[in-house]
Computed example of a mutant assay.
Amino acid sequence: MNTEFLEALKDLEREKGIAVDVLLEAIEAALLSAYKRNFGSLQNARVHIDRETGEFKVYTQRTVSEHVEDPRQEIDIKEARAINPNYAPGDIVESEVTPRDFGRIAAQTAKQVVVQRIREAERNIIYEEFANREGDIVTGIVQRVEQKNVYIELGKTEAILAPSEQIPGEEYRQGDRIKTYIVEVRKTTKGPQILVSRTHPGLLKRLLEMEVPELQEGIVELKGIAREAGARSKIAVYSKDENVDPVGACVGPKGMRVQNIVSELNGEKIDIIKWNPDPSKFVASSLSPAKVIAVEIWEEEKVARVIVPDYQLSLAIGKEGQNARLAAKLTGWKIDIKSETQMREIYPEEYNELFSDEYE
C-alpha cells in the first residue's frame, strides 16, 4: 500500500461518501484477521496503516507483568524496562512483527474490504432514498416475473410486486412501464427490499394528487377513499371555498383528469362524490350513481337505512353488493338499503312519516 492507494480512497470518499478513516479502520481489522489466519498467531496484535504514507505494520501486544504465566500474552517487567525504563505492571508493550511476504495478502485483503464497503454504502444510499419515499409513487420497468412475483427496475435497484398487491386480471410483460405505490422498504443482508403495490388505496390517492393541482394546493381536500382494485373505487372530496366545485376539479375539463387515472389503473371505475358533514346526505351521495329517496340515521349504532326507488335497488346495491360495500367503507356507516316497496311492506308507518325529497 502507498500514497496512490490513499488517494484512491480519497476519491472514493468524494464519489461514494465513504469516509477514508472508516475504510482504513475496516482494512486494519481485516488485515489483523488475515495475519492471524495466515501466520497462526495466537498473540494479541494490532495492524496500523500510516495515514500519510499508506505504509502498514503489524504489532504484537503484551501486558507487562511481574509474574509471567503466558509469554504470548505477557512480558516480564525486567524485559519491558530494558526496552523502556518507564514501563510499569499493566502497561502494554508493542513489538513490530510485520511478515516479509505480507504485502500480497495485504493488497488482496484491502481490495476485498474496499469493494465490500462500497457495496454496503451503495445499498445504504438506496435504502435511505427509498425509505424516505414510503407512501409515494414510483415509476419502473417490468424486468421479469418469477413465481407470480413481478420484479420492477427502479434505477439501481428493483422492487417486488407480490401477487397479493397485483390488480386482478392485470398482465405484466417485460419492458412494461408501470406506476406502483411503495408500501414498505426493508433492510436485508442482500440490500434494500422494496415492496410495492398496485392495489393500495394510497396509489389512487397519489395519482389524484398528481393530476389535480387543487389537491396539492389544499384548495380541495381528500376526505376518504374506498377501493376494490381493478373494479371500482369511491372518492370523497370537499372544498371550504364555496366557489370551488371539488368534484369538478377532480374530474377535470372534459373528464380528462379522472380519465388519466382510469387509464393508469386499466379501466378501474372511479366514483367521485362530494363529502358532506351531514351524514344522511353523505351516505346518500356515497351510493352514486344510484338515486336515493330518503335516509334514516341511527347515530349511536352508526347505522343508516337508505330508501331507493324500486328500479334503483340493484344499482344501489351493485354487482355482488359492491356499490353498497364501497359506500359503507367510504362513509364508515353500516348501510341498509331498502326499495320503496320493501319499506311500505316491512315498515309502513315509518315509510309514511319519511319525506320523499330526493337527496343529491
Results as ranks from 00 to 15, higher is better:
residue 50 D to K: 07
residue 23 L to G: 10
residue 131 A to L: 06
residue 82 A to K: 13
residue 13 E to Y: 09
residue 51 R to V: 05
residue 77 I to E: 08
residue 52 E to M: 03
residue 40 G to T: 06
residue 114 V to T: 14
residue 98 T to Q: 02
residue 64 V to H: 06
residue 137 I to P: 12
residue 97 V to K: 07
residue 150 V to A: 00
residue 60 T to P: 01
residue 97 V to N: 02
residue 38 N to A: 13
residue 77 I to L: 14
residue 53 T to M: 06
residue 143 Q to A: 02
residue 42 L to A: 11
residue 124 N to V: 01
residue 40 G to P: 08
residue 99 P to C: 02
residue 28 E to D: 05
residue 131 A to G: 02
residue 91 D to E: 13
residue 145 V to F: 03
residue 66 E to R: 14
residue 146 E to A: 03
residue 15 E to C: 01
residue 111 K to C: 01
residue 92 I to D: 04
residue 21 D to W: 02
residue 99 P to R: 06
residue 19 A to G: 07
residue 118 I to N: 02
residue 47 V to P: 09
residue 71 P to N: 04
residue 41 S to L: 12
residue 140 G to V: 01
residue 132 N to H: 14
residue 45 A to E: 15
residue 40 G to S: 12
residue 139 T to S: 11
residue 128 E to D: 15
residue 53 T to V: 08
residue 133 R to A: 07
residue 129 E to T: 14
residue 79 E to F: 04
residue 81 R to N: 09
residue 137 I to C: 09
residue 63 T to L: 10
residue 124 N to T: 08
residue 150 V to I: 01
residue 145 V to R: 13
residue 63 T to H: 02
residue 57 K to L: 02
residue 82 A to M: 10
residue 44 N to M: 14
residue 122 E to A: 05
residue 30 A to V: 05
residue 109 T to S: 01
residue 52 E to I: 03
residue 86 N to V: 12
residue 35 Y to S: 11
residue 82 A to I: 01
residue 132 N to E: 13
residue 17 G to M: 04
